[in-house]
Design a binder for these strands. Structure first.
Lengths: 136, 136
DNA sequence: GTAGCTGCAAACTCTTTGCAACTCT
DNA sequence: AGAGTTGCAAAGAGTTTGCAGCTAC
């Protein structure tokens, strides 16, 4: 039983074949797959799995905070396993996603919220950039 | 002719009655109206205006960068006239939107993109918070 | 006069959901 | 056994678009 499976079992979820497959896909993903991508990858393990199940499962995992949902400037969601807190830089040309962290920004976010009279609950920070090419 | 109307005319857009109304609604808005809100407000000036026109116009203005489109954690877009660059804090309880600016964050954004090998093209920074209530 | 704009309704995309059958525990 | 889960197909929400008629320039 994988770590993700254990966390689901502990939460009282039934460990069906479909869920195992979806968890495996998420665990193995090195990118930030869309629902469509999770669906396609899951189908290579179990071709009978349905889109509805993928949606339902991802929503469940999102509510459990086992997974993080991203809605970049695209008209669909992407997901990744919830590990360390980080932000994303999206390559506007290729769609490639780079992760980064910054203690300074974390501190600044909290401070700004506080200054405005709010407790920071969550946040979204996305940079959109174009790769710098060095001319030799 | 208002400033917004002039900018549209300069861009070669025909200044139709519908566009005047929509520009007026946007210019007078003190919030970040959704398409639905723009539509409703526009209808108080011209009840014959259609949703399709509101969508088409907002998309046009967005492309012209006369307006800024926001997609907060909601399943629809909000718009505001493009003036000074700023970010938003959204009250998770009321949906109220507070604007803020931070030179430090601007600098940090650019620096982070640069460090990752990218030129910063655009960015999204949204804080989601809960209002702090002081106990007397 | 005509390129561009409009309203209408239909189409589209992503996502959710009702239902009957099935399956973990 | 029974609650939870699934696949299917239909429905939903927000947004876009084809088309015929209209209008600013």
């Amino acid at each position: 039983m994988t770590v993700l499976e254990k966390r689901c079992a502990d939460a009282g979820l039934k460990m069906t074949g479909q869920r195992k497959v979806i968890l495996r896909v998420l665990g193995e993903a090195e990118d930030h797959p869309s629902v469509e991508s999770v669906y396609e990858r899951a189908r290579t393990f179990d071709p009978s799995i349905s889109m509805a199940t993928v949606y339902r499962t991802l929503n469940l995992l999102d509510e459990m905070a086992l997974v993080v949902r991203h809605e970049f400037k695209e008209n669909f969601s992407r997901f990744e396993v919830n590990t360390d807190h980080h932000h994303h830089l999206i390559d506007v040309e290729t769609g490639e996603v780079v992760e980064f962290q910054s203690e300074e920004i974390e501190a600044m976010k909290k401070e700004i919220a506080q200054r405005l009279g709010y407790d920071l609950v969550e946040c979204r920070l996305e940079l959109y950039g174009r790769k710098i090419r060095k001319n030799a």
